[in-house]
């Protein structure tokens, strides 16, 4: 079952894909459209942009106001469909951030 649809890292030509592959296992913070954030380790992404995070934690404001404090809870492995994703960040050093930005 494992890796049936996996791409072969060596044969893969796209530099963008290899850059994303380097982000695997990094801390990723995904915002979804109802205002929650999910922080977890980047586990997988497919062509449609659906992301799987491992050991994810949900952050959720406890009030409607923008400065509301957040509460969190652990969820484990989660799938965030591309359609409800509103932001996506990874944790990195400033240097790395520059190189990431220069890609596009």
């Amino acid at each position: 079952m494992e890796g049936e649809t996996a791409s072969d890292p060596i044969a893969d030509g796209s530099p963008l894909v290899s850059r994303v592959r380097k982000l695997l296992f990094r801390r990723m913070l995904v915002g979804v459209k109802d205002g929650r954030f999910f922080l977890g380790s980047f586990h997988c992404i497919d062509k449609q942009g659906n992301i799987i995070l491992q050991d994810a934690v949900e952050y959720r404001s406890i009030r409607r106001s923008p400065q509301s404090p957040m509460e969190q809870r652990c969820l484990g492995i989660i799938l965030i469909p591309a359609a409800c994703r509103s932001s996506c960040h990874v944790d990195c050093s400033i240097n790395e951030q520059m190189s990431l930005l220069s890609i596009i």
Binding site: K47, Q48, S87
Partner: peptide, 16 residues
Amino acid sequence: VWADVSPLLAAACNDL
């Protein structure tokens, strides 16, 4: 820092 990777992901997905 938190670096926005949405454009990178979008572009990479396109290549997949």
